[in-house]
Nucleic acid binder design. Structure first.
Lengths: 190, 190
DNA sequence: CTCACATACTCAACTTGTTGACTAGGTCGA
DNA sequence: TCGACCTAGTCAACAAGTTGAGTATGTGAG
């Protein structure tokens, strides 16, 4: 239901093709709203039918034509209404945590490997987010940015993603320590 | 696909009715895997058909009969296989963050109210998790617990939930400050 | 004595999300 | 010049998640 709102929020930055939106989602929105390109294209069609966005076809040489979408005023109104509405609590689905829950009677070594992988992944994401942040700040300090920027929303959601991944890294390290000690203890007792 | 794995991991604690599983999910698993009671009941039926769990009907006076589910050895094998498999990255969906992303051109006051609500919610969750943790520790220090406990998985996932909510509280506080300053600046410039 | 809340589910309809394959051209490196 | 990857999508089929209502009984608070 609120993929559309995420799309509209992304379109506040200006018109964009479905393909670009997919990339933008992947880069920053994925942090709090994930979706596949297919979902995006389907939703964009529906939103156009509903008059929330409008499309402009751009003919391109050497490349397939693309459709650039932009918010209509109806879409803008809808989005404002959404910001004023009640929001559902965070929905998380994390298979790794399911595996950790079951680790004691499962393949502990494999779970440890998955945690290490997750930690690396999180570290890579932190790097990407930091680069995005530097780009947003554009040489300014955070205070200067917050003073002068037109929009602070993208910055705040970026901060959330950053601290989530940092927290992830800490938890991974802690869990690995616990599982390693436990392994050593079990080895010693056999 | 891996709701079943989450259910099986929960059944490691012993047999349980669908109703109790729903409550358990709500209390602790919700932290990394959310689902509605309907999803649970449907999945339990399928899992029974697939031989991953088995049901025992318990007749009750004064109450509807209930079915207690427990893991079969096939289910246990499946779960072990799952712990050894590759896991999809975390999938988060958070409407509040979508609203924050769009806050600059939306109803900022309403978004601030939502953030305050989220912060209270997170604080309540921290309380609940701390109580759950005290119950798991059962008077022991963390080190003692990690030495003696049969399962550390539930503790580790609980820690993840705790730090997630603490991080949430910090982010809410920070975002409110930013949005308030911004509001003050905009007021001053009109 | 009523109302809300707890136990313990079931059913149906609908909306979302996921997977895999297909079209069609372009660029870049080995 | 071959294969891999990028742009920019479309289509179909299926799996999973969501919502709302219904069934039937019991307990405790006001």
């Amino acid at each position: 239901m609120s993929l559309r709102n995420a799309v509209m929020a992304a379109l506040l930055d200006g018109e964009s093709s479905g393909y670009d939106l997919a990339k933008a989602f992947d880069a920053s929105v994925a942090n709090f709203w994930i979706c596949t390109p297919q979902q995006l294209y389907r939703e964009l069609d529906r939103m156009e039918t509903d008059g929330l966005i409008e499309a402009r076809t751009v003919e391109q040489e050497r490349r397939p034509n693309k459709r650039l979408f932009s918010l209509t005023s109806k879409g803008r109104d809808e989005l404002t209404r959404f910001t004023a509405a009640q929001h559902k609590p965070t929905a998380i689905r994390d298979e790794l945590l399911v595996a950790v829950l079951a680790a004691d009677s499962g393949d502990v070594e494999a779970v440890k490997a998955s945690i290490r992988e997750r930690r690396q992944w999180a570290e890579a994401k932190i790097q990407r987010y930091e680069r995005l942040r530097a780009k947003l700040l554009d040489g300014r300090t955070e205070d200067e940015f917050l003073e002068t920027a037109e929009r602070v929303g993208p910055y705040l959601t970026l901060l959330r993603g950053l601290s989530f991944e940092r927290d992830n890294v800490r938890w991974c390290a802690r869990s690995l320590t616990v599982l390693e000690r436990r392994g050593a203890r079990l080895d010693a007792s056999t």
